[in-house]
Write a protein that binds this DNA or RNA. Structure first.
Lengths: 125, 125
DNA sequence: CCGCATCCACCACGATACTG
DNA sequence: CAGTATCGTGGTGGATGCGG
């Protein structure tokens, strides 16, 4: 039932696939932007308000990348003042599930990790 | 049944949790090392052979971090020549499942992403 | 065999200032 | 409101060489 070498999916190509995902999502703001967009379309400033600490520059860059990769759409309205709305594409939306799997793992195991880390550091001091 | 705001797990704390996981696993070699260790304990050189492109330095650093965080154990045998074996802990092993979820997402959607990326770049040229 | 020390290139990110 | 331009910096990771 459970293949012993499940990991072949990750290692099969020498890690190229898993590395490609990480290169895509592992930066500082991407997952935050994606999950913040889950409830629905949102404008730039609104996003910035919902993501504490993000600068205009980084939010802009992150959205540009997400748009380029087809995870987010960008709609510009010809109004004054200008209005721009961002929305997840189906592909972008599909990223939320594995991201939550990761978050679940974090919630469950980060305490263990921090404990182990402190023990280890204690022996070093 | 399905909460609309599932993403609260990721955004709830301003992203601290998800950022902590990423900081832990999103470097270049960690997931490769972890998944390579899935079948069982392995020695340093063996690991290096199974992970194409990794340098001694990076493999060593990655293993040190994994050990510190309690994801991997390190057993040194007092022999000549020296032998060192690495093995996943239960916590380390538990990381494989969400990693595979990410890999599945990658396998399914990376082609879309690359296509979108090419289209986008085409318009820029 | 295993792994650390050193040096160096690159880039992600932040702060700030400025525009349509 | 919704960005871009510019500059400065820390940290990651590659190459190389030495040591137990």
């Amino acid at each position: 039932m459970f293949s012993y070498e499940r990991s072949c999916k990750v290692r099969g190509d020498g890690g190229a696939t898993i590395r490609a995902v990480l290169d895509r999502i592992a930066d500082k703001w991407t997952l935050l932007v994606v999950t913040t967009l889950e409830p629905g379309r949102m404008r730039f400033t609104e996003l910035q308000r919902h993501i504490p600490g993000v600068s205009q520059r980084m939010l802009s860059l992150t959205l540009r990348h997400l748009e380029r990769d087809g995870l987010v759409t960008r709609d510009v309205f010809a109004e004054v003042p200008p209005r721009v709305e961002y929305e997840l594409t189906p592909v972008g939306r599909s990223l939320i599930t594995p991201a939550l799997a990761l978050a679940d793992w974090a919630i469950e195991h980060l305490p263990d990790i921090e404990e182990s880390r402190e023990k280890h550091d204690g022996r070093m001091a």
